[in-house]
């Protein structure tokens, strides 16, 4: 069996395990919903990493999606409308910002994204009369396909949507990476000018991936808003962007399961660790990030893949 087919099998197993975990321990359902949502956002980071670019500002799009839900929910309290709306808004802003940042590479790309997300953060924080500042906004009750749901049922519904979106985007990104557009991303990293001499605009290739990453981050934000029912400017803060990059590297950029493995590990550890070591949380993340980069570059997925490779070889 090839690794690509094993990947699908593993994804199904992982989904089953998540469902079982959520069934056995109710509070895990919420944690895993958030993990799946972040995994979707990290898929976009993975696309950009393929092109050798890293954005320190993608929390901007997560926050956009989340605030879109918070602002639209009172007048349009339906998940199947809110999600596309959030995705469309994030995609539109992603296109606008992308037209600007896709001209830049490496540190400029990373820092311009960071700067723009910090601007958005301070807008959310300062425009109190619109955004209620750091207090944030409560998201009212939302129907799912017209059904008003309560408590656990609602939680399950959001979990289900998150899982479905994770699968959908996972499969899409998997196909995208194998496609000419995805392969050209890696070409940007290694020999960008050659693309130009083949008649292809590297900028448009990067822009497409960027918009896609913004859409996915927007969906993730919408899911987070639906799950937590409360949005604050912290969603856009640099530490949130840093988390996405962290998860991408921890999970491994080699395959689409990486972001989800990374996100689940991250959220589970955080539940236990963040409360006890709140002041050292970023420090722990930074240290793990360094260790992964220096000693286990493929991340969790890299370890899984090499283990599978050894088993097949044996």
């Amino acid at each position: 069996m090839t690794l690509r087919r094993t990947e699908i099998l593993l994804a199904l197993l992982l989904a089953a395990a998540l469902i079982l975990a959520a069934l056995s321990t109710p509070w895990l359902r919420f944690v895993l919903t958030i993990a799946l949502a972040k995994g979707v956002a990290v898929l976009g980071i993975l696309l950009l990493l393929r092109a050798g670019q890293v954005s320190f500002g993608h929390a901007l799009y997560v926050a956009l999606g989340a605030y879109a839900v918070a602002f639209l929910a009172p007048s349009m309290p339906e998940a199947s409308l809110l999600l596309p709306a959030a995705a469309a808004l994030a995609g539109a802003v992603g296109l606008l910002v992308g037209l600007f940042v896709s001209r830049y590479r490496e540190i400029f790309f990373g820092m311009l994204n960071l700067a723009l997300s910090m601007v958005f953060y301070s807008v959310l924080e300062k425009l109190y009369h619109i955004t209620k500042g750091t207090d944030g906004i409560r998201v009212p009750a939302i129907t799912v396909l017209g059904q008003p749901l309560e408590g656990a049922t609602y939680g399950w519904a959001v979990f289900g949507i998150a899982l479905a979106l994770a699968f959908l985007f996972g499969l899409f990104v998997r196909a995208y990476l194998a496609s000419p557009m995805g392969q050209a991303l890696a070409a940007i990293k290694t020999r960008e000018t050659r693309l130009d001499f083949m008649g292809v605009s590297p900028r448009q290739i990067l822009l497409s991936a960027y918009v896609l990453s913004a859409v996915m981050a927007g969906c993730a934000g919408a899911l987070i808003a639906m799950a937590t029912r409360h949005v604050t400017p912290l969603l856009a803060y640099w530490t949130a962007s840093g988390e996405l990059v962290f998860i991408a590297v921890l999970g491994g950029a080699g395959g689409v399961l990486g972001p989800f493995l990374g996100a689940i590990t991250f959220e589970l550890v955080r539940v236990y660790a963040a409360a006890t070591v709140a002041d050292a949380w970023q420090m722990i993340l930074g240290t793990v990030l360094l260790l992964v980069i220096l000693f286990a570059r493929g991340g969790i997925w890299g370890l899984v893949a090499s283990w599978l490779g050894r088993r097949r070889a044996a």
Binding site: G52, Q53, V54, E106, G242, A280, Q282, G286, L289, L290
Partner: peptide
């Protein structure tokens, strides 16, 4: 690769912020 260099200094930044 430059993306790894960037990530390393970013990790350092996270560590120093909490320090």
């Amino acid at each position: 690769e430059s993306v790894l260099q960037l990530l390393v200094t970013f990790a350092l930044f996270m560590i120093l912020e909490d320090a």
